[in-house]
Design a protein around this nucleic acid. Structure first.
Length: 463
RNA sequence: GAGGCUAUAGCUCAGUUGGUUAGAGCGUCGGAUUGUGGUUCCGAAGGUCGUGGGUUCGAGACCCAUUAGCCUCCCCA
């Protein structure tokens, strides 16, 4: 049979894993630096944990897991299952008989579930980071996969805007460490968007307005106007929106003008205040080394409807690609699972996209592909036994070493070392063994010398 | 959910208005060269042309269906 993998999934070759680990390593380091603790949750959740949390569209994209009731030995149970199957096929919907588990769709909802289940053991505010794959039954395309990784950091149990500011700093610090150019961290507030809907006389149409507005970059103001008309927004409202999104200047200047334009809405004023306070905290925390921009952007919307306060999204202008991260404040996330008054805020890094961007811009460090430092050539018989001892000595000294396990032709072994980009080869034959020495060949320069084991170790350690 | 493109060797792809025995590069394996890699040279293996049907004297090519992959919109990371 022809080997294949499911649509939207990928193998990661050793070189790719190295690169991915480079990204994960930077994130992990920063998360820990900011006091976040690691968490892992199962790949699958109970279906009821996930449904209804991501909107109608999201629900459709959840990967459901078939019950394995087929192992049930009772004929009665089997026929019951067949009935359910038939029902499901007739008009597509799910019954608990057929599926009651699903692959996790993101890391936030499982986190909320975890917090509620472990509320008595946790010290609040609880900060956790989590880096694991998630699955979506989406149609794959460039930069979009059915299995992809998310790296989230969330704080739950604190309403302070210091958390928002810290998360903004995590973004800026991480992309600074990756040397990613053209990074723009956009912030907005759901309250501001709610206020916008209010002053457009359409308080119940916040989602319609924000979805249309979110496309500003893509389809321009003309396209957005059309979309707003389609969504039945009054012309006076559209004019107001135009005025508001045309506001330019520094973040503080923007906020000042927005305050004048939207002063009649308490919600908008609350949004402006929280953005102002977040920026104030951020300014106290920030490093002058960071080259990314932090922009208040009222056209920023985020799809997930559990956000209630500050929202954030990160893009890189250096590459044509969707957002590489996003997040926001959700006031009542754990309320869904029965734990009230537990405000949370979090950010997510889309490392698959970050990978694509870094790869395209050739920003991965070059030394990532170094693996084994030295290969011992195998000459068979007593030579290889002596080589094994030498090899363990090297490993004890912290030098990664491997022996070619089979006694095949010399040049094949050399070709192997070359292909693996192993920088050193140790040759131990009869002569070297008799003298208790090794021949050390530098594969980059081609130089070779006969040395005592101690001297060889010194050279290998020096590089 | 809507639309577009593609499918030929392990990989990337040629293949003329339909015409004899389907090609190249890379990779793999063997040899030149069993104590010295990269470069080079010689040789070999490897294909029911995605699958099923149709048109035709004749189909890798044309038509229909089907499956899979890629991409765009929607939505999202």
């Amino acid at each position: 049979m022809k080997p294949s993998i499911p649509q939207g999934t990928r193998d990661f070759s050793p070189a790719e894993v190295r690169k991915r680990q480079y990204i994960l390593g930077i994130l992990k380091e920063i998360f820990e630096e900011y006091g976040f603790l690691p968490l892992e949750t199962p790949a699958m959740e109970n279906l009821t944990t996930l449904t209804g949390k991501y909107g109608e569209e999201g629900d459709r994209l959840i990967f459901k897991i078939l019950n394995n009731g087929l192992h049930d030995k009772k004929e009665e149970a089997k026929s019951k299952l067949n009935e359910e199957w038939a029902k499901m096929l007739e008009k597509p919907y799910n019954t608990p008989k057929v599926t009651e588990r699903a692959l996790r769709y993101d890391l936030t909802i499982p986190f909320a579930r975890f917090v509620v289940m472990h509320q008595h053991e946790l010290a609040f505010p609880f900060r956790r980071y989590q880096m694991q794959p998630v699955w979506r039954a989406d149609r794959p395309q460039k930069g979009r996969y059915r299995e992809f990784w998310q790296c989230d950091a969330d704080v739950v149990g604190s309403a302070s805007l210091i958390n928002e500011a810290e998360l903004l700093c995590i973004y800026r610090s991480a992309f600074h460490k990756m040397k990613l150019p053209g990074v723009v961290v956009k912030v907005n507030s759901r309250k501001l968007l709610a206020g916008l809907a209010e002053i457009c006389n359409a308080p119940d149409k916040m989602m319609d307005i924000t979805i249309a507005l979110d496309k500003l970059d893509k389809i321009g103001w003309e396209g957005v106007t059309k979309e707003l008309q389609q969504r039945n927004i009054e012309q006076s409202g559209i004019d107001t929106i135009e005025k508001i999104i045309s506001v330019t200047g520094s973040n503080e200047e923007k906020l000042r003008v927005l305050e004048q334009l939207m002063g009649t809405s308490n919600s908008a004023l609350a949004g402006i205040t929280e953005l102002r306070d977040t920026l104030k905290y951020h300014d106290a925390l920030k490093s002058n080394e960071w080259k990314s921009e932090l922009q208040v952007d009222i056209s920023l919307a985020r799809g997930l409807n559990y956000y209630t306060g500050v929202i954030v999204e990160v893009v890189s202008n250096a590459v044509k690609m969707g957002s590489i991260g996003g997040g926001g404040r959700y006031d009542n996330l754990t309320g869904l699972f029965g734990l009230k008054n537990m405000s949370g805020v979090g950010v997510s890094f889309g490392i698959d996209r970050i990978y694509d961007v870094l790869d395209e811009l050739k920003l991965f460090p070059e030394n990532l592909d170094i693996t084994t430092q030295v290969l011992l050539v195998n000459f068979g018989k007593e030579d290889e036994l002596y080589s094994l001892k030498v090899m363990q000595q090297l490993r004890t000294e912290g030098i990664s070493a491997e022996i070619y396990p089979d006694n095949i032709k010399f040049d094949k072994q050399m070709k192997y070392a070359n292909k693996r980009s192993i920088p050193y080869v140790i040759i131990i034959g009869e002569q070297e063994r008799a003298e208790q020495k090794v021949s050390l060949k530098n594969f980059v320069t081609g130089e070779q010398q006969v040395l005592s084991i101690v001297d060889a170790i010194d050279i290998l350690k020096g590089t």
